[in-house]
């Protein structure tokens, strides 16, 4: 009897010790999500269409667009201190290799000043460093479209596009861009 009781007691004890100590190992729950932060080319891309071939600039006189239908002289945009601060932060991040941070700061700058070509210049540089050459070129082309009349900027953009295309292995495209840069 005593034997039985003590055996039972011991069994109970063991069980309770087991209960107290058994730990269901906790598996930290990891959301099995894809990281879409790199490379951006994995994004659902817009309808794939070849960008229009870069045409040779046709020399010809042009006049400001803003006369018709509401003539108004276009004023150069003043860069706000906020945009300057963001471009600085982005540049520092880019130089130190933190390209994601550079990209974040530049997208913030873009929302504040979406027509500032310098924002697109830095963004294109960043995408080039991220080796996303396709997007880098498109961003640079957007910069070109916003730089009309500014010879210095246009030259820099076409030089950047030349470099992007070279890095992407598009030698003939780079040659076209180089010629374009030389025009300014």
């Amino acid at each position: 009897m005593t034997n039985y009781v003590s055996r039972l007691f011991v069994t109970g004890l063991i069980l309770s010790v087991l209960a107290a100590c058994t730990t269901t190992p906790y598996q930290p729950s990891q959301p099995p999500v894809d990281d879409r932060s790199s490379p951006p080319s994995q994004q659902p891309a817009p309808e794939t269409k070849a960008y229009p071939p870069v045409e040779e600039a046709i020399p010809g006189q042009s006049i400001p667009s803003d006369q018709v239908p509401a003539p108004q002289a276009q004023l150069p945009q003043k860069q706000s201190s906020a945009v300057i601060a963001l471009l600085d932060r982005a540049e520092q991040a880019r130089v130190s290799g933190d390209l994601r941070s550079a990209q974040n700061n530049l997208q913030r700058a873009q929302r504040i000043a979406p027509r500032d070509p310098k924002v697109y210049y830095s963004l294109a540089q960043t995408h080039m460093s991220l080796e996303d050459y396709d997007l880098a070129e498109q961003v640079a082309l957007k910069g070109v479209s916003l730089s009309s009349g500014n010879q210095v900027l246009l030259k820099r953009f076409w030089q950047l596009i030349t470099e992007i295309r070279l890095r992407a292995g598009d030698v003939s495209g780079a040659e076209v861009a180089k010629l374009r840069a030389q025009k300014y």
Partner: peptide
Amino acid sequence: ALSSYPFQLRQTIDADDVYLIQTAMQ
């Protein structure tokens, strides 16, 4: 950050043609 959705773009209409249609829409 798990994923970011960066600014994407692709030029699909020539700048000259789009300028003309923008003028007409103005």
